[in-house]
C-alpha cells in the first residue's frame, strides 16, 4: 500500500478525536487514554495503520477518542475481533482494550486462549475492580471480603490474579501499569506494542464513583505511610526477559519469579514488566503454511483469482 504520509511526523493531536470524552471526572481511564495516544505518538505509527478494538463498558469507548481505525465491539469479545482483524491485515498495529469485567469475566475464555496464539497484538485491561457502567458491582478482580459502596454485601468470591492467569495462558509479554503514573504507563505501552507477539498489560485504574476502596489515596498508601505500588525495575536483580526461549528451566524460573511478584498483595503491589519471551508469532507460523503472507497481508492477496478446476477434478 503506498504510504503517502510516511514522510511527515504526526502530531500528538492527530491521535485525538473531537469526540466528547464522557468518563466521570477523576476517572483513571483518562490516564490510560492519554498514555495510549502518547505511545502511538512516540512510536509515530500512522493513525490509519492502527486498529483499536474494544469491548463494552467505560473502557470500551476508548476507540472513539483515539483517531485511528476503531471497532467498539461486544462485551468480552474484543480479543476475538482483534484476532480476526490481525489475521486479515497483519501489517496493522492492533491494540485491544477492555475492562476487567470484560476481559476476566465475560471474556475470560478469550483472555485465556489469546495467550496460546501469540498474534502480534497488544491487549490493555483497564482494571478497577468494579463494573462501572452498571453502577459498581464486583468485578472478577475484586478481592474476597471487600465491599465497595454500591455493593449490598461483601464479595464471597475470590478475586482472580490476571498476571498469574496470563503466565499460565502463555502470553509472551506480561506487564502491569498504573493509570495515575502516565509516564511509566506510556513506556509500558510503547514496549508492549513493540513486542513481537501478544503483549498483555493490566492497568490499575481508579473508579472514583463506585470503587471507594481502591482509591488514589489507597494506591498512594496514605494509610500505611508508603506507596503501595512498587516498580519491579527498581530491584536491580529484576530481569523479566527469557534469554533462551527453548530452555524450559529458564522459562519456568522466570515464570515462578513473575508469579511470586504477582501475588504480592495488600501492602505491596508490583507494576512493570513481569515476563517477556521471544517466540514465533501466530503470523510467522501461518506464513510458513501460506508463504504469500510473508510479503503481503491477507487482505492484499489476489484471492479472487483462484482456480478451482483442479479441486473439482479431484472428485471425478
Amino acid at each position: 500500500m503506498p504510504e503517502a504520509t510516511a514522510a511527515r511526523r504526526f502530531t500528538l493531536q492527530e491521535y485525538k478525536t473531537d469526540q466528547h470524552v464522557d468518563w466521570c471526572p477523576g476517572c483513571g481511564d483518562f490516564g490510560i487514554l492519554s498514555s495510549i495516544q502518547q505511545a502511538f505518538y512516540q512510536l509515530q505509527i500512522p493513525p490509519h495503520r492502527v486498529a483499536m478494538i474494544s469491548g463494552i463498558g467505560c473502557s470500551g469507548k476508548t476507540p472513539h477518542y483515539v483517531d485511528t481505525y476503531g471497532l467498539h465491539t461486544l462485551h468480552g469479545r474484543a480479543l476475538p475481533v482483534a484476532t480476526g482483524a490481525k489475521l486479515a491485515n497483519h501489517e496493522l498495529t492492533v491494540v485491544a482494550v477492555g475492562g476487567d469485567g470484560d476481559g476476566y469475566g465475560i471474556g475470560a475464555g478469550y483472555f485465556l486462549n489469546s495467550g496460546r496464539r501469540n498474534l502480534d497484538i497488544t491487549y490493555i485491561v483497564f482494571n478497577n475492580g468494579v463494573y462501572g457502567l452498571t453502577k459498581g458491582q464486583a468485578s472478577p478482580t475484586l478481592a474476597k471480603g471487600l465491599r465497595t459502596k454500591s455493593m449490598p454485601e461483601p464479595s464471597i468470591q475470590e478475586g482472580i490474579n490476571p498476571i498469574a492467569v496470563a503466565l499460565g495462558a502463555g502470553y509472551t509479554w506480561i506487564g502491569r501499569g498504573d493509570a495515575l503514573d502516565v509516564k511509566h504507563l506510556v513506556s509500558l505501552i510503547v514496549e508492549a506494542i513493540r513486542h513481537r507477539g501478544t503483549s498483555f498489560l493490566d492497568v490499575f485504574q481508579t473508579c472514583p464513583v463506585y470503587n471507594d476502596l481502591r482509591t488514589k489515596e489507597w494506591y498512594a498508601g496514605q494509610d500505611i505511610g508508603r506507596a503501595r505500588l512498587q516498580r519491579l525495575d527498581q530491584d536491580p536483580s529484576w530481569d523479566p526477559q527469557v534469554k533462551q526461549p527453548d530452555d524450559l528451566a529458564e522459562v519456568v524460573q522466570k515464570k515462578v519469579r513473575a508469579l511470586q511478584a504477582s501475588y504480592e498483595t495488600g501492602d505491596r503491589l508490583s507494576v512493570g514488566v513481569f515476563y517477556k519471551i521471544a517466540l514465533p508469532t501466530y503470523e510467522d507460523q501461518m506464513a510458513e503454511k501460506v508463504p504469500a503472507l510473508k510479503d503481503h497481508p491477507l487482505v492484499d492477496l489476489p484471492l479472487d483469482q483462484r482456480d478451482i478446476e483442479g479441486l473439482l477434478r479431484s472428485f471425478e
Binding site: 469479545r77 480479543l79 480476526g84 486479515a88 491485515n89
Partner: peptide, 14 residues
C-alpha cells in the same frame, strides 16, 4: 470467538 473473529476480519476487508 468464531463469529467475532470473522466479523473482525470482514471489517478489515477480507
Amino acid at each position: 470467538a468464531s463469529i467475532n473473529m470473522a466479523v473482525g476480519a470482514a471489517h478489515m476487508g477480507v
